[in-house]
Computed example of a mutant assay.
Amino acid sequence: MRLLLIRHGQTPSNLEFLLDTTVPGAGLTALGERQAAALPGALAGEDIEALYASTLVRTQLTAAPLAAARGLDVRVRDGIRELSAGDLEMVRGDSEAAKAYMATAFAWAAGETGLRMPGGESGAEALARFDAVVAEAADSGAGTVAMVSHGAAIRMWTAARARNVEVPFAAAHLLDNTGVVVLEGSPSAGWTALSWAGAAVATVASGADGGPTGRPLEQPAQ
């Protein structure tokens, strides 16, 4: 199966660098709406047979133009929602909050799945729910599946499940709004990442360590 993991369009919370992870979450900005509208063209070469979105409204709004263009229903699943920020939810917009959040997420990807986000879920819980939706998609028989999800969830899951993406790579590469990670494989055979934000995984240049809102972690709060 070919799996397209798509980050949602820009939200007001992204602009304020807030960890906005609970349902229903923020909608899209005007730019986010344009990003969503551009997805059908950007993915014109993909023969998408099934389309999923998380339970947060921003992913469903992002998926809507693609669904309309392809004549697909959007399958809304809680399992691919953003990693729970727990005690950090919507209370801080600084780099330290993002560092704490992503440090936990990438520890999960490295195998420390018993760790729990302060006030939130564990890595085992987060991976299990995402895995379940991917398994459902694989069982559907669709050749190419698109899932509109969230930056931290996509980066963490890919680092945990793709044989050719290690934690340092996922930690060092941002995934901008409506950025896409393309993988190929199956839950039983495993996954190989083919591209990350449009570049082949083997040739993507190293970048700054990136936070869940798309801001490099070392950049001061704005």
Rank of each mutant, 00 (worst) to 15 (best):
Val165Arg: 08
Glu49Trp: 03
Arg92Ala: 15
Gly41Glu: 08
Glu96His: 06
Ala162Cys: 11
Ser54Asp: 00
Asn14Phe: 11
Leu183His: 04
Glu89Thr: 06
Asp139Gln: 08
Val167Gln: 03
Gly32Pro: 00
Thr158Lys: 03
Glu136Tyr: 00
Asp73Lys: 15
Ala162Lys: 01
Gly141Asp: 02
Arg70Glu: 06
Ser95Glu: 13
Glu166Lys: 06
Val182Ile: 13
Thr22Ser: 05
Glu82Ala: 05
Asp209His: 09
Leu5His: 04
Ser206Phe: 05
Gly211Leu: 13
Gln222Met: 14
Arg58Ala: 03
Trp196Gly: 05
Met147Cys: 03
Val76Arg: 07
Val145Tyr: 02
Leu51Val: 13
Gly93Cys: 14
Gly71Ala: 04
Gly45Phe: 08
Leu43Asn: 05
Ile154Glu: 01
Leu43Ser: 07
Ala98Glu: 06
Ser13Met: 10
Ala98Asp: 11
Gly27Arg: 06
Ala162Met: 04
Leu175Ile: 12
Leu31Arg: 13
Leu127Gly: 03
Glu96Pro: 03
Arg7Asn: 09
Asp73Thr: 15
Asp20Ser: 09
Thr22Leu: 08
Arg155Cys: 05
Gly207Lys: 11
Asp87Tyr: 02
Gly9Trp: 03
Ser206Ile: 10
Val204Arg: 09
Ala189Ser: 13
Glu136Asp: 11
Ala193Gln: 04
Gly179Asn: 07
Val145Phe: 00
Trp108Asp: 03
Phe106His: 00
Arg81Gln: 11
Tyr101Gly: 03
Glu82Met: 10
Ala170Glu: 04
Ala193Cys: 13
Leu72Ala: 09
Arg116Gln: 14
Val148Pro: 01
Thr62Glu: 04
Ser195Ile: 13
Thr29Tyr: 12
Ala124Met: 09
Tyr101Pro: 02
Trp196Tyr: 13
Pro168Glu: 09
Ser122His: 07
Gly207Cys: 11
Phe17His: 15
Ala208Gly: 01
Ser13Ala: 15
Tyr101Leu: 09
Ala202Ser: 12
Val57Ile: 15
Leu183Pro: 06
Ala200Leu: 12
Thr144Pro: 00
His173Arg: 14
Gln219His: 13
Ala171Gly: 01
Gly120Leu: 11
Gly185Gln: 02
Pro212Glu: 07
Pro40Gly: 05
Ala128Pro: 05
Ala105Trp: 00
Leu115Met: 14
His150Gln: 02
Asn164Gly: 09
Val167Gly: 06
Ser188Tyr: 06
Leu88Pro: 08
Pro118Arg: 13
